[in-house]
Design a protein around this nucleic acid. Structure first.
Lengths: 112, 112
DNA sequence: CTATTGTACAACCAAATGGTTGTACGACTT
DNA sequence: AAGTCGTACAACCATTTGGTTGTACAATAG
């Protein structure tokens, strides 16, 4: 599946920033496997409920998870599309390098 | 090309943290296309030389670029292998989600 | 030899981050 | 109706981050 939507510079910042924390990565992991409430998530970490709530908010701001109300609970769900956008981003960097290798190859081919 | 080497939690933190800044991403971009000295890089940004030098140090700490001495200059070169490690990481998250989809599919298949 | 260039690094500062506790409130339970 | 549960958010604090200027030094140029 190919991802199309482009991200602004700020969105990219938030995306990678959100991924640069082990607790947040673990929340993404868990919620990609199965959705969970903030309280359920908080049980797994050695920090206050409020701290976990903040991490979820950061992930939400980065588009990596979404929250859906269900009664008084908020179900947190991982968003694979945003992971794919990050992948697409990194892929574009790799392409730059490949292009450079190709240029160098062409140079040597000329020499031969 | 498949990347094997595993990264520690701290290394992953540093990797994504390093990518969460537009100046640093631009340095990665430039040095993947062609290596450059720190001074050459600094010319492109509206900040002091020292600030750019710090950004390069962060990228180096994250393994995204490497520096090689050449006379009094330090050539900065982007490291595609580290980009690929980041990709592999994100891919593992996407796999989790695919596994979940497969489980749900199996569930519905049982129902049918 | 002297001057200049490219680099490294320390000290400092403002803002952001990651954590805490406390308060508030709507939604279920009894 | 009263109590509890899950959530949200503000205020606060220590540390980290992203920038600055200033000093130092090795390599090259004149």
């Amino acid at each position: 599946m190919v991802v199309r939507l482009a991200l602004s510079n700020d969105e990219i910042d938030r995306l990678f920033r959100a991924l640069a924390d082990p607790t947040r990565r673990d929340i993404v992991r868990r919620t990609l496997i199965a959705e969970a409430t903030v309280s359920e998530l908080a049980d797994h970490y050695a920090m206050s409920w409020a701290a976990v709530q903040k991490h979820v908010a950061v992930l939400e701001g980065a588009g990596l998870v979404s929250k859906h109300a269900r009664g008084r609970e908020r179900m947190v769900r991982g968003n694979p599309a945003q992971i794919q956008r990050a992948q697409a981003l990194l892929d574009s960097y790799e392409q730059l390098w490949r292009a450079r290798v190709d240029r160098l190859d062409a140079l040597f081919a000329d020499d031969a």
